[in-house]
Design a binder for these strands. Structure first.
Lengths: 194, 194
DNA sequence: GTCTATAATTCGATAGAC
DNA sequence: GTCTATCGAATTATAGAC
């Protein structure tokens, strides 16, 4: 934070990056409790003490690893009549891209048993998903609509990428877009009730 | 298993039931890793050694606690035109009933980081959800349709009961039925693609 | 049937040599 | 900057007294 604001990729930086990469991989695969500092160190081929030296504690390491930027603002200028398909396409891009998909997997894998992860996931909803919905729908309904959209998308992620339910894993991108797109379209801009 | 097939609720049986009830509550709230045998014992007001004596191991205790019977076969004789609303109503009944809701919470809370829980949840899908869908839809499509239905229902459970996303918690039963019902209806018997 | 005492691991984190 | 050695706490599980 003090010295390296421009060029040199010092050895410290590379070691730190290696630790963080190993941590992201293991947290995404096994969750917070299932990935020990010793596991992370072994996967990064360094000593466990180095993990603490660079990140102070396991909690801080997890906090650095659990960073998500869905880059949804780029979707703001879209056609309201196609928002359902646009959302589900972006969802597939995010989850099947190594960087963003890993970030979401880290949060979702631990959110059921780790309050910090749960809070971070609620933050992603409040700061990234809901504002997008508010931009295309009545702001008064945005919370409820964004909640319904999130319920479908988190459930799909659970079944396809974490729980790996065979029939959901087997779905092609086109099948997902054709089936889930209309659901999201209705949740986002369809006529609502009471 | 050997002696008590009829009447007496012996002290053993009562102790065993107390342990199991405490375990179900804590597994549902904190997940497999978060609920220790010591926690369970303390909550049942007995000694930790008793938990092992009655259930042999933590794994076996979890297996006994993670029992789910959704009682979906009772839904088989329903109108195809109303299956969406019927399913979402049954979903709300299950999750907001202390017995069944706790069972599902136990599985879902741990399924992301515990392979046994994940396998049990896949079993519930294969043996309880999918057969119901196969009874009302083309059996050739049953897996895909049941997978889509599960993605919406598990996602709703995650957002409402585990993650507790505020806008989803705030939804009334009627709002959920009105919004999610049509989604499930289309997944169950709507025209499909590719 | 219940509890005390403890074995055997595993974990996160620290101290200090080099 | 990296590693060895280890501490202290928590865990599951066992042995045995009462």
């Amino acid at each position: 934070m003090t010295e390296n604001q421009s060029k040199k990729p010092s050895k410290s930086d590379r070691t730190r990056a290696q630790i963080l990469e190993a941590a992201r991989l293991l947290f995404a695969e096994r969750g917070y409790d299932g990935a020990s500092i010793r596991d992370v160190a072994a996967h990064a081929s360094i000593d466990p003490a180095m993990v603490i030296r660079y990140f102070r504690s396991k909690d801080e390491l997890f906090a650095r690893a659990a960073v998500v930027d869905l880059k949804l603002p780029a979707l703001r200028v879209i056609d309201r009549t196609d928002i359902g398909k646009t959302l589900i396409r972006r969802f597939l891009e995010i989850w099947e891209d190594p960087a963003n998909g890993t970030g979401m997997a880290i949060l979702l894998r631990s959110a059921t048993s780790n309050e910090f992860a749960a809070e971070k996931l609620r933050d992603v909803f409040a700061n990234q998903v809901r504002p997008l919905v508010a931009a295309v729908a009545d702001p008064a309904d945005a919370g409820r609509r964004a909640g319904l959209i999130s319920s479908q998308l988190l459930g799909l992620a659970m079944c396809r990428y974490l729980l790996r339910l065979p029939p959901v894993v087997a779905l092609s991108h086109d099948e997902i877009i054709q089936n889930v797109g209309p659901t999201l379209q209705r949740y986002a801009v369809g006529e609502d009730v009471s």
